[in-house]
C-alpha cells in the first residue's frame, strides 16, 4: 500500500508512522528538542531544584539541631529548678530541726525548773504538815494530861503532876 506523504488535509494513507519521507524531519526536530531540554535541565532547572532541596534539607537539619539544643536547655533548666527545690527543702528541714531542738531545750529547761520548784514546794508543805502534826500531838498530850489531872482530881485524889504526865506519856506511846 501507499506510504508516501500526504500534504494538507487529505486522509492518511497507510500508517503515517511508516512514511519514511517524514523521518528526517522528525528526527531533526527531536534532536533539537532533546538538546534544548537537556541544556535547560542541566544548566538551569536541575541545579536549581537540587540546590533548593539541599537548602531545605540543611534548614531542616539546622532547625532540628536547634530544637534539640532548646530541648536540652529546657531539660537543664528543669534539672536546676529541681535541684534548687531540693536544696530549699533540705534547708527548710534543717531550720525546722534546729528550731525544734531549741524549743525542746527551752522546754526541757522550763520543765526542770518547774520540777525543782514543785519539789521545793512539796518539801516545804511536808515540813509544815510535820510541824502541824507535831504541834497537834503536843496539844493532844497536853490536853490529855490536863484531862487526866482533872479526872484524877474529880475522883478525889490529889494529882501528882509528875505521875500524871508520866502515865499519859506512857499511854500515848502505847
Amino acid at each position: 500500500m501507499a506510504t508516501e506523504a500526504t500534504g494538507g488535509s487529505e486522509h492518511a494513507v497507510g500508517m503515517p508512522q511508516l512514511d519514511f519521507s517524514t523521518w528526517p524531519n522528525q528526527i531533526f526536530w527531536l534532536l533539537v528538542t532533546l538538546v534544548v531540554i537537556y541544556f535547560v535541565l542541566s544548566k538551569v532547572a536541575l541545579p536549581r531544584i537540587g540546590a533548593v532541596l539541599a537548602d531545605r534539607k540543611s534548614t531542616i537539619t539546622n532547625d532540628l539541631a536547634a530544637a534539640e539544643e532548646l530541648k536540652a536547655k529546657a531539660v537543664a533548666a528543669e534539672k536546676a529548678y529541681n535541684e534548687a527545690l531540693a536544696n530549699a527543702r533540705t534547708e527548710a528541714a534543717k531550720i525546722v530541726a534546729q528550731a525544734k531542738a531549741e524549743i525542746q531545750k527551752d522546754l526541757d529547761a522550763a520543765t526542770a525548773k518547774a520540777d525543782a520548784e514543785i519539789a521545793a514546794k512539796a518539801a516545804e508543805s511536808e515540813r509544815t504538815i510535820a510541824e502541824i502534826r507535831d504541834g497537834a500531838a503536843q496539844a493532844v498530850a497536853e490536853v490529855a494530861r490536863d484531862v487526866a489531872a482533872e479526872l484524877v482530881a474529880a475522883l478525889g485524889q490529889a494529882a501528882d503532876a509528875k505521875t500524871v504526865t508520866a502515865a499519859v506519856t506512857a499511854r500515848l506511846k502505847g
Binding site: A5, G7, P16, T22, P24, N25, Q26, I27, W29, L30
Partner: peptide, 29 residues
C-alpha cells in the same frame, strides 16, 4: 480514519517535508 491524527504536516503551506521544514512535529515538541 484513525490514522489521520498521526499525519506529519507542514505548519505553513503544502510544500514537501524537508528535514528542516517546521511541521506539527516541531510545534508540539
Amino acid at each position: 480514519h484513525p490514522m489521520d491524527q498521526f499525519v506529519v504536516k507542514p505548519l505553513f503551506g503544502d510544500g514537501p517535508i524537508e528535514w528542516y521544514t517546521p511541521t506539527n512535529v516541531t510545534l508540539w515538541m
